[in-house]
Amino acid sequence: MVIRKPGEFYRYDNLGFTFQGYAIEQVTGKPFGTYVQDHIFKPLGMENSYLRLTPEITKELAVPYNQIGEAIPTYATVPTEYPGGGMLSTGSDMANFMMAHLVDGKLGNATILKKETAAEMHKPQLAIHEKLPNMAYGFEYASQQHYNGQYMIEKSGDMAGYHSNMWLIPNEKVGVFVTTNKDFEFRTPLLEAFMNHYYPSKGGSQAPLERSKHSLADFEGTYSDLRNRMWTSHIRSEDGKLIVKDRLENMYFMK
């Protein structure tokens, strides 16, 4: 049963990628991990990348820590091979993966994607506005305020004690990958510092747009995320401003 027409709504859903992994198994007749090893990891020379967290690999993992620096147990995934976020890799292996994406799906003599497929994956597939892209196929546009006008796609991953992020700037053939073993968020400040150093903003500050009370009223209403109903905001216009109130009673004023 189709609940929402494809292309009209968006919901970030790890389960959807797990279904895609299951579809790959049904079409190829191979376990998902085996297919990825044969068609991505091996061609790209990613010799330390896996989809199954075995006891041998667990011994090689960095010890995970919580926010106050206490060691915590290594996470477990169900199912064991988890297409929705269970990949294990290293910085050097991810460098090969990024280079393949930045060179039309190729690395040396190996090709994992057609040129047209790579371009389609890097292109926005959904946007609430043409200047605010949301998702590509497998990639996001989550921290646009730190892009400094560059066209960039990214993907993050989080498990208890482990956090990673990959950024690609296709037009510059540049990629950045960072991974940590502590529940401490520094990925966004790192991106901001990197972009300000290597790709500083060229534009000046813009004056706020003057909008009539009537046009601001068009934005009034309740906005809810399809994945998590806690991410619900109520918006109203008042005195030439938009007032946004979230479920935690935080209030924001937007001119």
Rank of each mutant, 00 (worst) to 15 (best):
V103I: 11
G105C: 04
Y141W: 14
D93S: 05
Q144R: 14
T80L: 15
Y82V: 01
M98E: 12
H122A: 10
E116D: 15
Y75C: 03
N96Y: 03
G86D: 07
S89Q: 03
G108A: 07
Y141V: 07
A142L: 08
L126C: 06
K131C: 08
K155G: 05
Q145W: 12
F139C: 06
N148I: 05
N148G: 06
T74H: 08
D104G: 05
K115P: 10
Y82S: 07
G105N: 05
L113P: 09
A119L: 10
H129G: 08
A119K: 12
G108F: 07
P73A: 01
T80N: 14
M152P: 03
A76H: 15
E70Q: 14
M87F: 11
H122G: 08
L113N: 09
N96E: 00
K131P: 01
P73F: 00
Y151D: 09
Q125K: 12
E120L: 14
P79V: 06
G91N: 13
H129R: 13
F139H: 02
D104F: 01
G105E: 01
G149I: 06
Y141L: 07
G105W: 04
L88C: 01
L113Q: 09
A95D: 07
S92L: 11
K106E: 10
A95Q: 12
E116T: 14
T117D: 09
M121S: 03
H122Y: 06
A110W: 04
E81N: 10
K114L: 15
S143G: 01
M121Q: 13
T90F: 13
Q150N: 11
G138S: 06
T111H: 05
K123I: 04
A119V: 05
S89M: 01
I153K: 04
N109R: 10
T77C: 08
H129D: 14
I72N: 09
K155F: 00
G108S: 09
E116Y: 13
S92K: 12
S156L: 00
G105V: 03
T77E: 07
M98Y: 04
Y151M: 04
M152V: 12
L113W: 03
F97Q: 02
D93A: 07
G84T: 08
K131E: 15
